[in-house]
Amino acid sequence: MFSVLGSDSVAHMAEEVEDAGSVVPRAMVWSFFLNIPFTLGMVISYLFCITSLEDALSDPTYYPFIYVFRQATGSKGGTTGMTIVILLLIIMITISAMASTSRQTFAFARDNGLPFSSWLGSVHRTLHVPLNSIIFTMLFTCVISLINIGSTAAFNALLSRSTVALMATYLVSITCVLIRRVKNQYLPPARWSLGKWGLPVNVIALLYACWAFFWSFWPISNDMVADGSNFNWACLLFVGLMGIGSVLYYTHARKVYDGPVAIVKDRDRLY
């Protein structure tokens, strides 16, 4: 599930994209259709090349994909070359994720939805980017990544929780659009539309989001150990964070949160 996420990252950069109403959705659709076939082929090839799951998981490098590359190529040079490709892809993905996450942080801060909103929601005068949000996102990510040193189970729980959170937001937004489509209620005009495919795509997306949301809470094994190291703690994190967020909203945030911007002014006209 995690491998097919990310095509919506550009949506968080929409304010910095010219002609975003047309460019952003086209970028999302084409990035998905151009990457998913290769991703599916990569996953299938990877699974067929795992000669021993136990040996891959217990490899001295602690990275099963390096073990698989070594078994497939039979040489250190081939393994190193393929590993470099993976590392380059991870670097690119990290830059993209940092860019979109920092913009989302900036957007919430601009609407007074986060602590220290005036600092996080500021834009650098010369660079014209939310530099404070970018710095905060990078530092926060580095700190959170250190959890993997102390507990792999806790780190995996954070990864699962990110998938759960994305699917939860998809469920809310897609359901709202789907209800309006079914009831034939008003939807704002769009520069780019799926047309008659909008309804079936919404239904398929909703079914997939429900399926992914359900399985994201499950552990990776049905053989639980006493210390809970292979348990999926995403359920506890999700419920806990939702509870904390609800308390903060009703006690403080709803009094200061401005909500999304309703009117955006550009160089030529008002939307």
Rank of each mutant, 00 (worst) to 15 (best):
T101H: 13
T101W: 04
T101F: 09
R103N: 08
R103W: 01
Q104W: 03
T105C: 15
T105N: 12
F108A: 07
F108S: 08
R110S: 10
N112F: 14
G113T: 04
G113C: 04
L114V: 00
L114S: 03
L114M: 12
P115M: 05
P115I: 02
P115R: 09
F116K: 04
S117T: 05
W119R: 08
L120Y: 09
L120V: 04
L120H: 08
G121D: 09
S122K: 13
R125S: 15
T126Y: 07
L127C: 02
H128R: 15
P130A: 07
P130Y: 10
L131G: 00
N132W: 09
N132L: 03
S133F: 03
S133D: 01
S133C: 02
S133P: 02
T137S: 15
M138K: 02
L139M: 11
F140R: 01
C142R: 04
C142F: 15
L146S: 07
G150C: 05
G150P: 03
G150Y: 13
S151M: 06
A153D: 08
A153S: 15
A153W: 09
F155E: 02
F155L: 02
N156Q: 12
A157D: 01
A157Y: 02
L158D: 01
L159Y: 00
L159F: 01
L159W: 01
L159K: 06
S160C: 10
S160M: 06
R161G: 00
S162W: 00
V164E: 10
V164R: 05
A165D: 01
L166G: 11
M167N: 15
A168F: 15
L171P: 08
V172E: 03
S173M: 11
I174M: 11
V177T: 12
V177R: 14
L178E: 06
L178V: 01
I179F: 11
I179M: 12
I179L: 13
R180A: 14
R180H: 15
R181L: 12
K183G: 00
K183Y: 04
N184W: 04
Q185N: 14
L187V: 11
L187H: 08
P188R: 14
P189T: 11
A190P: 00
R191L: 10
W192D: 06
W192V: 07
W192T: 11
S193R: 15
L194P: 00
L194T: 01
G195F: 08
W197A: 14
W197Y: 13
G198K: 08
G198F: 10
L199Y: 12
V201F: 14
N202R: 05
I204D: 02
L206R: 07
L206I: 02
L207G: 15
L207K: 09
C210M: 14
W211G: 08
W211F: 15
W211K: 05
W211I: 07
F213C: 04
F217Y: 13
W218T: 14
W218F: 14
P219G: 03
I220W: 05
N222M: 14
N222L: 12
A226N: 12
D227L: 08
D227R: 09
G228V: 09
F231T: 10
F231S: 12
N232M: 01
